[in-house]
Design a protein around this nucleic acid. Structure first.
Length: 542
RNA sequence: GGCCCGUUGGUCAAGCGGUUAAGACACCGGCCUCUCACGCCGGUUACGCGAGUUCGAUUCUCGCACGGGCUACCA
């Protein structure tokens, strides 16, 4: 009754970790945390043909990135190991239970070869029944221990003939269970086929493994995608015969995440096609070397990714959308999980990220942004950027302004770097946006948007900027307010509307028509660099 | 084909017998403004269809339609 809540995420190590997979983890996690339960990671590597090296480590890294780390798993064994099904198979966990089912008359040996199965399907296929099943109707005419004389079965077994073990589902019974999300669900056993439980290689299929492992690992609540609903009756039967239906975990079949356009469930292909990630992190297939982009590398904050996923199929009813993981733990309830699938909307995902970039302290992600700058060659570790550009040492202004502070590699530079991020963050949707939005702070623009300036460029403006440079050089304080005041005074003296020279000023500093307020920019740029850029701009425009 | 699940604006969704049917994203106007963004104001767009139950159905029931999932020695 009052047993401890235990949930599990049981992925197959076959490739990248899909959005839907992460959401399943998330709901598992939220449910377990909110009830003080355990969250277990179990690796379902029973299909050798689909096993991909590195996939397990990758999954773990994804969970770490998302902040959804399991309490137990292959790398953190608890009392219910091992946590890889291949290892559990080696211990005979599954074979034993499959045999037990045969003893009880609920399973049987089947010797049909893959070719024979194909032949059967071809032979019985009709327009009304396009996919004939190996079931109570057909098993009598197949090669199995139910149809064959006992003697022949023994001989086949003794001869080492490859076999599988199939569940024996008897017809005409209605079985059902109460799904935590969907309510009562019923099935008629006449529709259920004799699924393979143990494969010829001795590995269990998902059906046997999930039941045996959930029992052995004392799983109390099992979440999985809706695509599993049709096989739930098989699992229910297995529970009934093996461990008792009353011990079966409560099931919760989660709605699917669908393609944004058209219909069907979201696949990696859709992401490639529509230009957005589907995997949590970059995944490169070891066989094909094909690289698939992940949300992380695309510039998403894990907090935003998780938040977005949580809202895809659940909400707290209040209209609130932005939640931290801890807040989600507090607010989450299975009753409010939707039944219907949701089309994935990348725009909305971007919006969540934007919210999080604005919400989090920049210190939380400045390291990531710094890396992006370094990748682009805009910032080098430990080197003041302007020096790196080969400015003559003598020209370096000691102690004042941006030059001394632009080095993001030391404490002082760090502060400057944070100020820059602070200034541009609200126009960044993805972390990668910081590069185009603020690289001009560290590297003078390579080209200036002359098209926006030249048509209206004249002698008056030329004079104004020459005057501005002179005045700036005399300034002892370098703050946005005084700058703006100075700027406007010169304009007034020259009978120029400030609005007319603001845009050229901006273009000189950043290269184009974008960015935060010009005086804020100039402040962070520093006196020397600002003057330098104005001079350069004058050279270009004249 | 069969079985199962689902169906509120373009998308995510609130609603749980009586509402002018929330809100968010997107979109379209406007304001703010040195640019871009933010912010603010405003706008377009929805209960799949048909029966029933009821004084009254978006809400309950049943059909239909549509969408989705499954139908492997894959998970």
């Amino acid at each position: 009754m009052n047993q401890k809540v235990r949930v599990r995420f049981a992925p197959s190590p076959t490739g990248g970790l899909h959005l839907g997979g992460v959401r399943t983890v998330l709901y598992n996690y939220l449910f377990a945390r909110s009830l003080g339960g355990d969250f277990v990671l179990r690796i379902e590597d029973t299909d050798q043909s689909r096993f991909v090296p590195g996939a397990e480590e990758y999954i773990l890294q994804c969970l770490q990135w998302c902040g959804l780390e399991p309490d137990e798993g292959p790398q953190k064994p608890g009392l219910y190991g091992p946590y890889r099904q291949s290892e559990r198979k080696a211990l005979g966990f599954y074979q034993r239970h499959a045999e037990a089912l045969i003893q009880k008359g609920h399973a049987y040996y089947a010797f049909d070869t893959p070719t024979e199965l194909e032949q059967m399907r071809a032979a019985y296929k009709t327009p009304e029944n396009p996919s004939p099943q190996y079931d109570h109707r057909l098993r009598g005419s197949m090669k199995n221990s139910l149809a064959l004389p006992a003697e022949e079965t023994r001989q086949l077994l003794d001869a080492g003939t490859p076999y599988v073990i199939r569940i024996k589902v008897d017809p005409d019974e209605t079985i059902g269970f109460t799904d935590l999300i969907r309510g009562d669900v019923h099935f008629n056993t006449s529709q259920i086929d004799d699924k393979v439980l143990l494969k010829a290689d001795g590995m269990p299929t998902y059906h046997l493994a999930v039941v045996v492992d959930d029992f052995l690992m004392k799983i109390t609540h099992a979440f999985r995608g809706e695509e599993w609903l049709p096989s739930a009756p098989v699992h229910l039967l297995l529970w009934r015969w093996l461990f008792g239906e009353e011990n079966m975990p409560r099931w919760a079949h989660l709605p699917l995440i669908l393609k944004p356009d058209g219909n069907g469930k979201l696949s990696k292909r859709d992401g490639d096609r529509l230009g957005f990630p589907v995997f949590a992190m970059n995944w490169s297939d070891p066989k094909t070397n094909e690289l698939t982009k992940g949300f992380r590398e695309m510039g998403f904050l894990p907090e935003a990714f998780v938040n977005m996923l949580a809202m895809l199929g659940w909400n707290d009813g209040s209209g609130r959308e932005v939640f931290t993981l801890d807040e989600l733990v507090g607010a989450f309830s299975l009753e409010r999980v939707h039944k219907n699938g949701a089309k994935f909307d990348f725009e909305k995902a971007r919006w969540f990220n934007h919210e999080w970039i604005r919400k989090e302290p920049v210190s939380k992600y400045k390291g990531l942004v710094k890396e992006l700058f370094q990748q682009q060659g805009i910032l080098a570790e430990g080197l003041p950027p302007h020096d790196k550009q080969g400015k003559p040492g003598g020209e370096t202004v000691g102690g004042t302004g941006a030059d001394a502070g632009a080095d993001a590699g030391n404490a002082h530079g760090d502060l400057h770097f944070e100020k820059v991020l602070e200034l541009v963050r609200e126009r960044c949707t993805l972390l990668t946006d910081f590069v185009p939005q603020s690289s001009f702070f560290f590297k003078a623009p390579a080209t200036l948007d002359t098209a926006s300036v030249l048509p209206k460029w004249n002698e008056g403006k030329k004079r104004f900027f020459a005057q501005l440079v002179l005045q700036m050089e005399l300034l002892h304080s370098w703050e946005a307010e005084t700058l703006e005041k100075e700027f406007k005074e010169i304009a007034a003296a020259d009978q120029i509307k400030p609005g007319d020279v603001l845009l050229p000023f901006r273009v000189m500093l950043v290269g184009g028509k974008f960015g935060p307020g010009v005086f804020e920019i100039a402040t962070l740029l520093g006196q020397a660099e600002t003057i330098r850029r104005i001079r350069h701009g004058l050279g270009v425009f004249n």
